[in-house]
């Protein structure tokens, strides 16, 4: 029996910006650099940058998203955070 370790982003859980990541504000949004994996990630909206910076203040990613975007954009931002989780830009807490 093969067990696969699938990493799944749970938007109802609390998250934070990884301690190994530096954020630099840019005109388009921000650059995120992971010092461990050496990945460079472009965050391409100001709302996403605000969301990532304030993630730690909320009990869930869903709550943090609702604080910065309208409900119609909620799923789009869940997917963006899921992508950041896959890139190890976010970590659980």
């Amino acid at each position: 029996m093969v067990q696969s370790a699938v990493r799944v982003f749970d938007s109802s859980a609390p998250w934070k910006l990884s301690g190994q990541v530096s954020l630099r504000d840019e005109a388009f949004g921000a650059l995120a650099y992971h010092h461990g994996t050496r990945r460079l990630v472009f965050l391409k909206s100001r709302e996403l940058v605000a969301l990532v910076r304030n993630l730690e203040e909320f009990e869930s990613a869903d709550e943090a998203i609702d604080a910065v975007v309208v409900p119609a954009q909620h799923q789009r931002y869940v997917e963006a955070l899921s992508s950041l989780f896959s890139s190890e830009i976010l970590s659980g807490r």
Binding site: L40, V41, F42, S83, S87
Partner: peptide, 8 residues
Amino acid sequence: EELLVEEV
């Protein structure tokens, strides 16, 4: 709607 996240 363009991608919000891109990685290199």
